[in-house]
Simulated scan of single mutants.
Amino acid sequence: MQKVQIVCIGKLKETYWRQACAEYEKRLRPFVDFQIRELPECRLPDAPSQAQIDAALEEEAVRILEACRGGEVIPLCIEGKALDSPMLAAHLQQAANESAGRISFVIGSSFGLASSVKQAGRLRLSMSPMTFPHQLARVMLCEQIYRAYQILHHGKYHK
């Protein structure tokens, strides 16, 4: 069974976001070994300098890349490629055919991702040119992963 994870910086604080992710995690169980890995974000002062932000992103990058070892990395970033749902499904199928041991989608902190994480991805994914809160982006990504596996298994969810 293919392994898919979302590696993200920070925790979901509100119960409704956690419940939404848990629902998609449950729905994904028949298709993939799915998990969400929350990594701690670096603490920064209220008005951090660019040097402090860069240092925090590099520190987070070390933890992210360790969590993603052994598979394909798909960082979410604004400069990434926008895919429709069938295209994402096709990419997941191709990764499975190429024996990617695990697929790791990565959501960074509110300051984004270090370039080393972005460069680790053969595909950089953009959800939209719009900016979303990280909590909502996580739920949307869970839904799109579920939709992709519904497409691959000819389910009725995607119309």
Rank of each mutant, 00 (worst) to 15 (best):
W17H: 14
S85Q: 04
N97D: 15
L39Y: 08
R63S: 14
F132V: 04
K13E: 15
Q5H: 08
S128V: 05
E14S: 11
L88E: 03
L76G: 02
E41P: 10
A95V: 08
C21A: 13
Q35H: 11
K13A: 14
I103H: 05
P75R: 03
R69K: 15
R122I: 09
H154V: 05
Q135L: 04
G70M: 02
L113S: 05
F31K: 05
A82T: 15
E14G: 07
Q119Y: 05
S99W: 13
H158P: 00
R29L: 11
A114P: 10
P129A: 00
A90M: 11
R124L: 11
L28D: 02
V73S: 02
I6V: 14
A120H: 06
H134R: 09
Y16L: 10
I64A: 03
S110Y: 09
G112S: 05
S128R: 03
F34Q: 01
G108R: 09
R147T: 01
K81Y: 05
Q5L: 06
T15C: 08
E58V: 00
Q2T: 12
Q35A: 14
L88P: 02
A47L: 12
V117R: 01
M1I: 11
E72D: 11
I78W: 13
K11R: 15
P45C: 02
F132I: 04
V62I: 11
R43W: 04
R69W: 07
P75F: 00
A56Y: 06
D46H: 13
Y24H: 04
M140Y: 03
D54N: 14
C42W: 08
V62Q: 13
A51L: 10
Q119T: 11
G101T: 09
P40G: 01
I145T: 00
A20V: 09
A61N: 01
E59K: 15
A95L: 15
E38F: 07
V117Y: 07
W17V: 08
G80Y: 02
E60K: 03
Q52L: 10
A137S: 10
C21Y: 01
A114S: 15
F132L: 13
W17Q: 12
A120I: 07
L152Q: 01
F31G: 04
A56T: 08
E23R: 09
H153A: 06
A47V: 13
Y149I: 01
R147N: 01
F132S: 06
C68G: 06
S109M: 05
E41F: 10
I64T: 03
A22G: 13
L125H: 01
G70I: 01
A100V: 09
L76V: 04
R63N: 12
G121K: 07
E60C: 02
P86D: 09
